[in-house]
Design a binder for these strands. Structure first.
Length: 152
DNA sequence: GCCAACGTTGGC
DNA sequence: GCCAACGTTGGC
């Protein structure tokens, strides 16, 4: 099983929303590197659900992949803010995966993530990081789950 | 292929 | 709202 981190802005779609809707197509990924990671995801993989552009930003919970990559329909929807007129329907440029909630965690703010030695190499914490989907090592994932499961 | 301009992300 | 970082675009 592989592990991932996926960012979402909670004002748009937060972990509470995922719990409420139970399944969600992860739309709007418009970065090739992130898209390529989506294409590597397999059913059963788990992902840390990270709240970006939030006050404070941080980890909210764990999700799992329940549907593998397929074309993101919003790329063909002129009414969508994710519409991409350059994407060819016979060879779609952008994919989504379908995710479902697994477990809510104690919210782990970014400031605390930065103090965790297990995450020292994690791309999330790298300067200037903007990637919205990234792989995590087994150790990074385990450390986040442990930190989010512990009482403090 | 270079690179300046531009748009977006995301922390603060 | 600001701004640093970075990806993309497009002229040449």
């Amino acid at each position: 099983m592989a592990y991932w981190l996926m960012k979402s802005e909670p004002d748009v779609f937060g972990y509470d929303d995922l719990v409420r809707v139970k399944r969600e197509g992860w739309d709007g990924i418009r970065n090739y590197q992130a898209r390529n990671f989506l294409r590597e995801m397999r059913k059963g993989d788990q992902a840390v659900f990270y709240h970006s552009n939030a006050t404070p930003p941080g980890v909210a919970g764990i999700a799992k992949i329940v549907g593998e990559a397929e074309p993101d329909p919003t790329q063909f929807d002129p009414a969508s803010k994710y519409f991409d007129p350059a994407s060819n329907p016979t060879d779609p440029r952008w994919d989504w995966v379908t995710v479902a909630p697994v477990k809510r965690l104690r919210f782990i703010p970014l400031d605390e993530l930065r103090t965790m030695p297990q995450l020292a190499e994690c791309r999330l914490l790298a300067r200037g990081n903007r990637l919205s989907v990234m792989p995590l090592t087994d150790g990074e994932f385990a450390a986040i789950v442990a930190a989010g499961s512990a009482k403090r």
